[in-house]
Amino acid sequence: MAKDTIVFHSALPLRRRKQRLYRSVRHHAAIYLFLLPGLAFFLVFTTYPILYSFVMSFTNWPIMGPAQFVGVQNYSQVLNDPIVRTAFLNAILYMVVSVPLQLGLGLLVAIGLDRPMPGRTTLRLIYYLPVITSWVVVTYIFQYLFNTDYGLINWLLMSINVIQSPISWLADPNKAIVVAAILGSWKGIGWAMMIFLAALQGVPVELYEAAAIDGAGKWHSFWSITLPSIRASMFFVTVLLVMGAFQVFIQIYILTAGGPADQTQVPLVWMYQQAFANLQFGYASALSWLIAVLIVLFTMVQFWIFRPRSLNVREG
């Protein structure tokens, strides 16, 4: 890793060797000064709780009194739980619906609002409004919109005679997950838009001009200039959205609480109920580590998809 640190060339005079060593130490000292505050916060407030919960996932983790070591019992319980399987399948359905929606629409909206246009600020704000509204509040609105008997969606569909009798949106597992995914996407498009907007500012205008001179169409410019130039941001957004899909919580917790009969269960709702309603903290922390491992696997796939073609790293 640190191939640039110390390079000994015995042919060099001692003074220059010393000078190199000194420069290398100074180089690293400066870098670690940059890292110090971030690492300190990370070790105390993040790493310690993570480690604690990892250790406790091998115990019965009673919230009071001494914990008992139970080996991998929590993990085998989680892995043999049919509801965990349902929960992960639902999370994957949520991901399949919500990630492309947010990624695609977020990028399109960002490209649309990148260039000057009348009302640009207002439009940007409208797309960003869902992002800043409280999760709890918007979930209640969606619950009302999709209510079977007096929801606005069924009322509209019946008014224009698309359907004759109301659809039970939230009583059917697949429909309920899709409703939650639509809610998540609605809330997330503005978020993705912001990141893409910021990234698009970094694409040098000269590249487009050069391409235009070469007679490249807009479509070609998009594929060969825009997308490659915001690769890191695409990667960031995708990784975060996939992570978010596996960590979907409030939407499901309020819309269905995992019901009917745990058919719309998702990993975090199940975990929350196990921990704070049933006091199975050991089970819950084992489940959270399983969630983490799955997200790591998905992220590795994304690292491979978005792997850089050239390194943008400064040597020395």
């Binding site: 990370f42 407030f45 993040t46 790493t47 310690y48 709780p49 993570i50 604690y52 919960s53 406790m56 919230i63 990784v239 992570m243 960590q247 919580f249 990993p267 975090l268 975990m271 929350y272 921990a275 903290f281 819950a284 922390s285 959270s288 580590w289 969630i291 983490a292 997200i295 790591v296 992220t299």
Partner: peptide, 17 residues
């Protein structure tokens, strides 16, 4: 490590934190 820390659901940390 930063990346992995984001992948573990924060709810797990509530008691230790």
């Amino acid at each position: 490590a930063f990346l992995v820390s984001m992948m573990i659901p924060g709810m797990t940390f509530l008691l230790p934190q």
